[in-house]
């Protein structure tokens, strides 16, 4: 199954991610983000990080999750290759949603990785998670 496609938007960059469930959707949205950063060059998964995020809604969770990944790249040069979502849940107490995942990747190396777009933030602009015929899609626009 196709994991994501690129969206065409004046001034910015966006992706539409696909998934058969939420875990896969979030994992594929992350893959779309890494693709934009490197322009699609291969990244190895020699380092594994535990990353968690929370959001007030499912959409909010997707934005804060992607912003976590952007933060790790922009601050530490950590480039992901693959995300395994361990848990994505709505806590019985309190509001909102949470995610916990393992992110595999390596340190950015300009001699090896493509320099694609310097993604700075995932935004709420046109943000949408939808379900049709059991297939989930998420549209996310990034500020660059």
């Amino acid at each position: 199954m196709q994991r994501f496609e690129l969206l065409d938007i004046t001034g910015d960059a966006g992706i539409r991610a696909f998934g058969s469930d939420l875990k896969e959707l979030f994992s594929n949205a992350s893959a779309g983000l890494f693709h934009l950063i490197t322009g699609g060059s291969p990244v190895s998964g020699t380092i594994a990080l535990e990353v968690a995020a929370e959001g007030s809604s499912l959409e909010g969770l997707l934005v804060s999750w992607l912003n976590e990944l952007i933060f790790r790249f922009d601050t530490y040069g950590f480039l992901g290759s693959r995300v395994v979502v361990e848990d994505l849940w709505k806590p019985s107490e309190g509001k909102g949603w949470r995610i916990r995942a393992k992110v595999f990747g390596e340190d950015f190396d300009p001699s090896k990785h493509g320099r694609g777009l310097l993604i700075k933030a995932a935004t709420y602009h046109r943000l949408k998670i939808a379900e049709t015929d059991g297939r989930l899609t998420a549209d996310i626009i990034f500020d660059i």
């Binding site: 933060f71 922009d74 601050t75 320099r115 777009l117 310097l118 660059i144």
Partner: peptide, 17 residues
């Protein structure tokens, strides 16, 4: 703390786009 971390190595850089 995140903003501090992110800003630490980016002072004096042009950026992209």
């Amino acid at each position: 703390p995140k903003a501090y971390e992110r800003g630490r190595a980016q002072q004096g850089t042009l950026g992209s786009g």
